[in-house]
Design a protein around this nucleic acid. Structure first.
Length: 428
RNA sequence: GGAGACGUGGCUGAGCGGUCGAAAGCGCCUCACUGCUAACGAGGUAAGCCUUAACCGGCUUCAUGGGUUCGAAUCCCAUCGUCUCCGCCA
């Protein structure tokens, strides 16, 4: 059973009110720290009062049990009846306070790193790196929809017929290309000591709380009639994997490569990316998830590492990209820092997000109760990080557009040829 | 879908109204022992909260939430979870 804790320690919160305030402000999250502190004062006071009464009870228990004189015994029992009533009063009040306290604790934002740029939303993310030349063509280039439709790699019309809005079929070489990418990614990340995992995609609600997707964000998730949820990323299942466990510290860091379908309702994105394979309700994603010891420097190092992994993967494919440091307003409740890797999409003449790498300190592991014993034997919450490894079919968009030829054929990146079986996709 | 069993510490597992934060074993730590290691021996070893400079001390926790009781791991109810058998099934 998961008894999830809260993102930050209440003691830490009380001692660092200003930090929390600044964090909320930087993340553009409305959070009233003072209300929480007042509530916590109440909670403490009631706890102390109730504890005093219980201490009385506990002391009397021994005496009653050992009393040999029946009359004395009855007298003590009568006395304790009064104590019981007083205790019940405090407990009822405490219960009410605790309910509010817990709800509020779930909304305390994690503190973003100093290096996170200030800004209100993704338009203010800061470019920190570009790689490759933006692809130029000496012919009239096509977008991914035309290219892929002409080569029978995708069928969007029938996709809409079968699934509805945002539906698609990947067909023939479109499907083959996905398999090639998955297999290449499997080899690439295995060589970096990631353990591949195919996780459950239907999960219990608790896992979404644990990873920080709930309580906010309910409307973007698919739900089953049993009250379970379809995951939007295998991060959710992989983080649940070790929930409520005490890990061997010599087993850390754990590097997992999740592979799963991902389901997103895209409820808040109605006017956006209405055509093609950029924004769809279901897709496949390989995902990097790491659990490590509770050490900020280590988290930072591994964060750079998983971000570098995806960059390296894209570099091998040869697609121009840039990396941005997400600004405060573009960070989730639990994220300390996040990088997005964005690929060049020639027809749109802009970079489009392909994946993001974040770290959380112990935000998720507290909620999921994932601990380990450090060298001195103390139980500590682990740190967690995750990053996209590669999403399909979104990656196809920039791949086919960047590698298109004047005759509408598509050149396959060298590294993929071995997995794909041929070096070009063209009309027969 | 039908029937039943069960949920206790890092793990296995006993306890079924007060002497139980909980036997025993495993694991782990310390000491002793031994060419070295292993085995054997002695002792220690749950977590969280409050208070404290620290020691001490107090409280909570035997899935969760209610109830009965002066008192609940233990009795009652509900919920959640797990397992087994039957049925169905890729």
């Amino acid at each position: 059973m998961i008894h999830y804790s809260y993102m930050l320690d209440i003691k830490f919160i009380r001692e660092n009110k200003d930090l929390i305030n600044q964090a909320a402000k930087k993340k553009r999250i409305d959070f009233r720290i003072d209300e929480l502190v007042i509530l916590d004062d109440k909670r403490r006071k009631l706890m102390t009062l109730a504890e005093e009464k219980r201490a009385l009870q506990n002391a009397a228990n021994d005496k009653i049990a050992k009393a040999e004189d029946a009359e004395k015994r009855m007298g003590m029992i009568e006395e304790m009846k009064v104590v019981k009533i007083e205790l019940e009063k405090y407990e009822t009040e405490l219960k009410e306070v605790m309910k509010n306290w817990q709800n509020m604790m779930l909304l305390v934002p994690n503190i973003p790193d100093m290096s996170v740029p200030d800004g209100k939303d993704d338009s203010e993310n800061q470019e920190i790196k570009t790689w490759g030349e933006k692809t130029k063509f000496d012919f009239e280039s096509k977008d991914h929809i035309d290219l892929m439709t002409n080569l029978n790699m995708v069928d969007l019309e029938r996709g809409a017929k079968v699934h509805g809005f945002r539906g698609y079929f990947l067909t023939g070489d479109g499907a083959r290309l996905c398999f090639a990418i998955w297999n290449f990614a499997l080899d690439f990340f295995s060589a970096k000591d990631f353990i591949p995992i195919i996780p459950p995609t239907i999960v219990r609600r608790i896992n979404l709380f644990g990873t920080g997707y709930l309580p906010q964000g309910e409307e973007d998730l698919y739900k089953t009639q049993d009250g379970d949820y379809l995951i939007g990323t295998s991060e959710v299942s992989l983080m649940g994997l070790h929930a409520d466990e005490v890990l061997q510290n010599d087993s850390l860091p754990k590097r997992y490569l999740g592979f799963s379908p991902c389901y997103r309702r895209e409820a808040g994105a109605h006017g956006k990316d209405v055509r093609g394979l950029i924004r769809v309700n279901e897709f496949y994603k390989l995902e990097q998830v790491i659990l490590c010891e509770a050490n900020h420097e280590l988290s930072v190092k591994l964060h750079e590492e998983i971000n570098r992994n995806i960059e390296e993967f894209i570099e091998i494919l040869g697609i121009p990209y840039r990396t941005v440091a997400n600004c405060g307003g573009d960070l989730g409740l639990g994220q300390v820092k996040k990088y997005d890797v964005e690929l060049w999409v020639p027809k749109e003449e802009k970079y489009r997000e392909i994946g993001s790498a974040s770290y959380f300190h112990d935000f998720q592991t507290r909620r999921l109760n994932i601990r380990y014993r450090d060298e001195s034997g103390v139980l500590r919450y682990a740190h967690s990080l995750n990053s996209t490894a590669i999403p399909t079919p979104r990656i196809l968009v920039s791949m086919v557009e960047n590698f298109q030829n004047s005759d509408g054929s598509i050149t396959i990146p060298k590294a993929l040829v071995k997995y794909f079986g041929k070096d070009i996709i063209k009309k027969p």
